[in-house]
Design a protein around this nucleic acid. Structure first.
Lengths: 243, 243
DNA sequence: TGGGATTTGTTCGTATGTATT
DNA sequence: GAATACATACGAACAAATCCC
């Protein structure tokens, strides 16, 4: 009416976004039940919209939907974590390949401004720092101009956040800023191998944080899983759930 | 209880699958409207289940969902086609990387049996031949053991089919069989560069079919679009519907 | 094992928004 | 340009399944 909204405000998307944020911030822990009725009353809407939002979240892998048994926050297994990481790595390498040597000045400026914001937030706000570190990768995907890649990276990054909240350390973004800076430099220089290596190392650091939780001793076994080789530990079963 | 059905029959999934098949077989042409009421009565269910199915199809990129304007079969632009192809290429290269040199005998046997089925169908049934050619790629993804990769490849292959039905030739699977055989050989030999090159060439052939449609004359204009340059043909409108 | 409370799956009706004459 | 016809968005109620005691 009098409001400047060009599109009508999509109501289901608001619920979707709110639940998504709650999950990623661990306000809703992995495995937590998500009763439709409760959520509906909490948001002041009917169950229909909640259902739709839960359906989308399930498509993104953030919630698990069991027939006649309702929805719950996803609790990915380590095997699923490995799958997600492998695909995220491929997608982000695709992004840097597309950008390497083709970065326009305005795009480089956006990246550098973002990293500066990261550096600024690093000193003060913890949550903001984490959020910005993740959004750097979204920005990379966006700059490729490939909308589908952007969607996939967003989805995969979200699942990574959930996985890190399950298995990982609290995520110290200390190193991330420097690694982001180095990547931008390599992109500007058009050094494709360096770009790939930097991105690879950067993501491997994230993976490592997820896989070396309590005891540094089983690092080798954990890495063996990531490599996909059942080599030195045959009696290990792949059913490691709820650990 | 007495029935062997391990899961209850998900009714929405049936509608989803039926619509999906109808779209991929071009029984529903790109751009065609999909009225909830009509589909609901056709399937003998309420509009709610149809809505859910349409939502999933929209998440897969097979239908477009405009607010307050209903659903229609997706009609991807050439820019979207380029995006989909680029990501599919990365995903399938990831699959061959994971499989190269690690193919177990049973897995290799499955692949070869599939290719033999392709060869057999090639002489007789056209639709079956097309279906099997696509399922070869799904089988590759499945053999990696990465369930998420499998889902993504399935999704991307579906969108590719839709794109080919819009812009491509009728798809002659003649060459595919030989290319599939060559890829299996390279996977067994553990020749990673050859694997990547073969898969790359194979997918590039599919892309090429989509991009050189009726007249070889406007190839340049088409390629210009793919490059992302609006250069030589500004008066073209993107409204090509209901053709 | 069984019964009741709770939650989900589904249907149908109404209001709102869009396309058409 | 306004009124009509139609399709969609959303909500409330019914039926079925699950969970808990």
């Amino acid at each position: 009416m009098t409001e400047p909204d060009p599109k009508s405000p999509p109501r289901a998307a608001a619920i979707h976004q709110a639940l998504r944020q709650a999950i990623l911030e661990q306000a809703l822990a992995p495995g937590a039940k998500l009763p439709e009725d409760l959520i509906a009353s909490q948001f002041g809407v009917s169950r229909t919209l909640v259902r739709e939002a839960l359906g989308r979240l399930a498509a993104e892998g953030l919630v698990e939907l069991r027939h006649n048994r309702g929805a719950s926050v996803a609790a990915p297994s380590l095997a699923e974590a490995r799958d997600v990481f492998a695909i995220r790595r491929a997608m982000e390498l695709l992004a840097v390949d597309a950008l390497c040597g083709r970065l326009e000045p305005a795009q480089a400026a956006r990246l550098e401004a973002h990293v500066e914001a990261e550096a600024a937030a690093q000193a003060t706000s913890g949550p903001t720092s984490i959020r910005l570190a993740g959004e750097f990768h979204l920005l990379l995907a966006e700059l490729t101009g490939n909308a589908l890649l952007q969607r996939y990276v967003a989805e995969l990054a979200s699942r990574c956040s959930l996985i890190l909240s399950l298995y990982g350390r609290p995520h110290s973004a200390d190193c991330a800023v420097e690694e982001h800076r180095a990547l931008i430099a390599a992109l500007r220089a058009g050094d494709a191998p360096a770009c790939r290596a930097l991105m690879d190392h950067h993501l491997a650091a994230v993976m490592g944080r997820a896989l070396l939780p309590p005891k540094p001793g089983d690092m080798r076994a954990v890495l063996a899983r990531y490599a996909g080789t059942p080599a030195p530990s045959p009696p290990r079963r792949a059913k490691a759930r709820s650990a």
